[in-house]
Computed example of a mutant assay.
Amino acid sequence: MYEPYENPIPNEWLTIDAPATVDANSTATVNVTVDVPTDVKGEYGGCIKLNIDDSATERWGMDYEVDIRLEVWKQPKTAYQQNFTVKQGQNFSVVISASQWGYDKYATGAEETEEPSFKVSLALADLEGEDMTPELSKTVKTVGVSLGSDYLPLEDVTSEETYHVSHIEYSETYKVTNATGGVWTLKILPKNTQSFEYTIEIGG
């Protein structure tokens, strides 16, 4: 592994299965396996030099290499929390959304990606007992469709398909009517997404 990345991929994570030499005008398969420890997270990167004997590499200052970038993250076990204040008798709603992008499928190699979901609860400081689970009043799925070839691998770019899904946004809306006044705590535990947005609308 070569490349002065801020967080380089350690050599001990990699197993490379490749022939010692490859003749000119021939092909070969190189298998690279990355074994990531369970106690790490963050972004890692590096390059694998192919060691191709080509005079152009010296003449033009270029080299043949394969770039590898990893983003390691874990499903959270504790919920995100946010406090907000509601007056007695007011209605309020919470809208939570997350997006998936077409290039994620090609980056992970997965044919299908599980849809994002959220475990949502609300708590009022002056009320005793467990958190309440608000009623899910609406779900929305918004799909972006492209006629271009952005972020598509070669086999899809050259296919006869006209339309490609570029991104999908999922949203869930929760409503509480005639709420008890006070400071409420919103708790969101996301699943199958690395980011999300939410909106708290009070009144109306």
Rank of each mutant, 00 (worst) to 15 (best):
P19V: 10
P190C: 02
W184L: 05
Y198K: 08
L186N: 00
S146I: 00
S99I: 05
L124I: 12
T162R: 15
S97P: 04
D63W: 06
P19W: 06
P37H: 03
Q194M: 12
G46N: 01
T199P: 04
S26F: 14
Y2K: 12
D17F: 06
G89E: 13
E58P: 08
I9M: 03
K49T: 12
V36F: 01
C47A: 13
Q90A: 11
K105D: 15
E112K: 11
I68P: 00
T139E: 02
S149Q: 15
W60F: 14
V32L: 13
V176L: 06
L122G: 00
K138W: 15
N51H: 05
V95N: 08
Y64E: 15
E197L: 07
E197A: 07
E114F: 12
S146K: 02
A107P: 03
V32D: 03
N91F: 13
A18Q: 10
I200D: 00
P76H: 00
Y174F: 13
D17L: 10
V34G: 02
K77D: 10
T57P: 06
S149V: 09
T173A: 08
G42Y: 00
V66Q: 11
S121A: 10
Y163D: 11
P19E: 09
A24H: 04
P134D: 00
G204W: 09
L127N: 11
E12F: 06
A179Y: 08
T193H: 00
S26L: 11
D63T: 11
G102S: 03
E71V: 12
I202K: 05
T29C: 14
E43A: 15
T142W: 02
N178T: 08
S195F: 08
V95K: 15
L136Y: 12
G46F: 04
G102E: 01
A24G: 07
V165P: 05
E71P: 02
V140G: 10
L122F: 07
Y198G: 02
I48Q: 02
S146A: 07
I96P: 02
T142A: 13
G204T: 07
T180N: 13
